[in-house]
Write a protein that binds this DNA or RNA. Structure first.
Lengths: 220, 220
DNA sequence: AAAGGTATTTAGATTAGTCTAAAAATGTTT
DNA sequence: AAACATTTTTAGACTAATCTAAATACCTTT
């Protein structure tokens, strides 16, 4: 059995591994978890001894099969609780992250599955991220980040890669929600900002930082 | 802000204080929390410095006003989550305690109140214990002595009117503790003795002298 | 290949919570 | 009130997770 802290490390490595084949760096884990590199070194050593992480000195860390399974279970719990908070307790999508960070560590396999059932076996969380099933499986989504689209392209917002309160609040402010339509009206090369039209209605200009954190399914 | 561990200590002291005016003993706290007396001494000293516990060396501990408020908030959360687990997730009342022990430490005032609302502001948990409101106010329980109940009545033991060693030892011997459920199975008029079932498990016969010293909250 | 900069690891200290074993205080019995 | 037993506290050690500061390895640039 692993501690909550160990679970946090596994989850962080999982998140950072998404589009990186070789191991993730010690520094990047430290940044993700708001801790220091030396703490990370200690922990990945320990997780390596437990067989949950493949760690090579000076070369970085990746999850073992078992470590990945654990990470996926935590993510499953996190996302199911997020659905609960929004669907049942009427929280806004910008308020749920911190609470779910706590709830994801509750230990009870039966609880997770009952919750899943209670929520009607949802496929995605309120941020559009897929919820792994009991076995840790989840469908791969074909999506692109908004900054990959060209002028006149259209898409539907299906996910966000950042879930800080600030960011989500900002999205609310420009009427962007999951399912919103987005049309790219203009592109400004000097700072990579985009002028877009939201829901065929509101025109706003967004920075590259924003567009690179919005996942859309490209329409036609 | 206090740690989960500190919260556990406050809750334990609260529980043990129910029918004891002066401080609860270090050993009793240790037993309640499955830890050692030396650990308890350390912790009550710390909680005393924080102003949450009144602790006098060799004389025991009691909660300060502030410590009691915190304990009541934890108990409120514990009992609300228990209702959730039984009402919404269809758990049996015997499966929920360990999960609620974890859930009670989730930090989010908004979450607790939303949960309360979602559950329809329940008055008691699945074990019949009252749920404190936001301000920690406890509906006073109307209690009767056990000898006032009739055959087939059920109740929860919430106090004893005698605290002699002999008597309390006897109660320990028949597995009666505060919070124990009692079902009256039979009444023998010639000596007013009662046959009762304790905690849905042990059947014993008790004298009128005993039943008249047990305070119960009548169930339903 | 040497030099400098960055990333990473090591060494040693710190905090929260726990434990065992010994010492001190309290309570009980004669 | 002395002797014994019990309870409680103290002292010192341990584990998990963290940190700072110093040492080491790796990488890039000359």
């Amino acid at each position: 059995m692993q501690s909550s802290t160990e679970e946090d490390y596994l989850k962080a490595i999982f998140k950072l591994s998404t589009n990186i084949k070789n191991g993730v760096s010690t520094n990047s884990i430290a940044e993700e978890l708001n801790t220091k590199a030396s703490s990370v070194t200690d922990m990945v050593k320990k997780l390596s001894e437990k067989g949950l992480v493949n760690y090579i000195k000076y070369q970085g860390s990746s999850l073992s099969k078992e470590g990945e399974m654990i990470a996926l279970k935590i993510i499953r719990k996190h996302r199911l609780w997020e659905v609960f908070l929004v669907e049942k307790l009427k929280f806004g999508w910008d308020e749920i992250h911190d609470i779910a960070e706590q709830l994801e560590h509750i230990r009870s396999p039966k609880l997770v599955d009952r919750l899943d059932e209670h929520l009607g076996f949802p496929k995605t969380d309120p941020h559009g991220d897929p919820i792994p099933n009991k076995k840790g499986e989840f469908p791969v989504q074909k999506m692109v980040t908004l900054d990959k689209l060209s002028v006149n392209d259209k898409g539907i917002l299906i996910g966000v890669s950042e879930d800080s309160k600030d960011f989500l609040n900002y999205l609310d402010g420009i009427q962007l929600q999951l399912g919103s339509s987005i049309e790219v009206l203009d592109f400004f090369a000097f700072d990579k900002s985009l002028k877009i039209k939201v829901n065929n209605d509101l025109e706003v200009t967004i920075s590259h930082k924003v567009s690179s954190n919005l996942n859309v399914s490209k329409a036609k």
